[in-house]
Design a protein around this nucleic acid. Structure first.
Lengths: 145, 145
DNA sequence: GGCAGTCCATTCGTATACGCACGATCCAAC
DNA sequence: GTTGGATCGTGCGTATACGAATGGACTGCC
């Protein structure tokens, strides 16, 4: 016979930030992939590629910090983008530790489409909220750090 | 010579829900692990285990729907919790397809501590926001689906 | 010049997360 | 009673994500 469950009363998983953030993040990722059939980038790959295009020439580590990916993670993302011919890796003769990344012509060709898709995913993800709520939500999210 | 970057002007990755949600989610996960040394559950494992304790007896698939994990994902989570002796898997003689899950005594012993840790992580994650902002943020997050 | 501390990228191991396909089972309709 | 569709769990492949350890390279400081 089990002891009667000494349940932490009133605990509701559904009210916890962690649970809600996980669900919201999954939902956005799913929407992003749905609208991205054309370029077939994941949200993570898009973030990295967009930043490389914006910066033109970055160190792998520095890129990771810009897009919030640790060195172990960015390594795989860059490898896949390089395999697809969207990024070239060179080396800084001044600092032989670093991998210097730059976008290819294919990246420039792809990024406009990808940005449009990202904006559609953005809008879809926020669509349950009114315009004012969307603004407030984004402001709070930014403040979450 | 590269063509002058036909950059989608004014695009700011940092203003996109996907990017902000990914960062916020990572931050919470990191805080959760920090305060969870004692029970060593990941946020995902905690969610699953808490739900099993709450429901007492669930089908694996049904649990997955409750905690927003697809069948392939919940399978691994349950396997690890079972290996740790926190969950037992039995079978419903009425439906031989299903795996019926139930919490063990160890789960009951662990869950109170784990809930307290989860609440600390919750509070820490929300700490950049004022109490009013926290309420508003959670409401909006819930509305995001 | 040399050495300690730091920084960069990679690798390994583990944990989510999901699409897909599969075998087993159940159920509804015939 | 059989058969066709749905459901359940699993296995495989791929992509994030991160801690820890490693090897190579730089930088300060003496």
């Amino acid at each position: 016979m089990s002891s009667p469950p000494p349940l932490p009363e009133d605990f509701r998983l559904e009210d916890h930030v962690g649970f809600l953030l996980r669900k919201a993040h999954q939902r956005h990722a799913s929407l992003f992939v749905d609208v991205s059939a054309e370029h077939a980038l994941t949200p993570t790959q898009f973030a990295a590629l967009q930043k490389v295009v914006e910066l033109g020439k970055v160190t792998q580590n520095h890129l990771g910090r810009q897009v919030a990916m640790d060195p172990a993670t960015i390594q795989g993302v860059i490898r896949r983008l390089t395999l697809r011919g969207l990024i070239v890796r060179t080396h800084d003769p001044m600092d032989r530790r670093t991998a210097v990344l730059a976008p290819t012509e294919e990246a420039y060709a792809l990024i406009a489409t990808a940005v449009a898709c990202a904006q559609r995913a953005h809008a879809k993800a926020l669509s349950p909220l009114s315009p004012e709520e969307q603004t407030a939500f984004l402001a709070l999210l930014r403040k979450m750090g």
